[in-house]
Write a protein that binds this DNA or RNA. Structure first.
Lengths: 132, 132
DNA sequence: AAAGAATATTATGGTATTATGGCGATCCAA
DNA sequence: TTGGATCGCCATAATACCATAATATTCTTT
């Protein structure tokens, strides 16, 4: 699978957060969406680091959107949630056992690159506002 | 990752097989491509079942292409190699723990569907001949 | 100061991927 | 017809990653 639950949770959370008027806490969000609290907290933190969410500590704190939903590419959300960009096939990861050791220059490299580019472009051009 | 090594091995194998004039055995192919024999054998068998490869037993047997490379969608190859179609995100697999239990009708379903369709279309229209 | 809430770190069970080995069934060729 | 070559199938090990849990710490508002 290209995406894991982290991305699902991230997108669902953002949908709830954008509808709220005040900051929402991780725990409340976890309850509303029936998502494990700890797991969600980590995802929200990553979204905040990426500049997608703003986090406020202390009483009446929580998370809120940091920018306009039409200025947040879906790509950024997924990258933050997964901790890496969604990849078709990661040659580098298999460097040790790449047949012939021809990383990036084998018969199927052009195909993989083109495929990857298609996906990246799609996710870059699409904003959170477009899909909600 | 969207694809596993099974797809990589399948595509590399098909590239070698199409260049050969006589059937190639699984063992020889494994040696040439530096791929574990048993693992490769299973993949080749799946490609044969799918009608992409033809298998010949006995002396001077092996695998050869069953049809023209421009009539083999990359989608079919991946499906055969992976044992399933490449999915962006499989909601059904998480049916038990889907937030709100709204499978296929949550806020992000339309996005997931559109994304999946893009990938499917890309792989359907692309043939083995196009990428080699 | 005290309470509320994010932040950070570590650990763990489960599951999919990846890889291996062996043996039987089948087929071709001499 | 006989023997070697090859596919076909099953069971299993090892590895890696996903998803989750638990806990302690830091920060901020009231």
């Amino acid at each position: 699978m290209l995406l894991t639950r982290a991305s699902e949770y991230a997108l669902l959370s953002l949908d709830t957060i954008r509808k709220a008027e005040a900051p929402i806490g991780a725990e409340q969000l976890a309850n509303e969406l029936c998502i494990p609290k700890s797991f969600l907290a980590k995802i929200l933190q990553n979204l905040a680091k990426q500049g997608i969410l703003e986090s406020r500590k202390g009483a009446h704190g929580g998370f809120l959107l940091a920018k306009d939903i039409y200025k947040i590419p879906v790509y950024d959300i997924i990258f933050a949630a997964e901790g890496k960009s969604p990849t078709v096939f990661d040659c580098a990861q298999y460097a040790q056992t790449c047949p012939n050791g021809t990383i990036g220059s084998c018969a199927i490299s052009p195909f993989l690159l083109k495929f990857q580019t298609r996906i990246d472009d799609f996710l870059f051009d699409l904003t959170l506002g477009d899909i909600l």
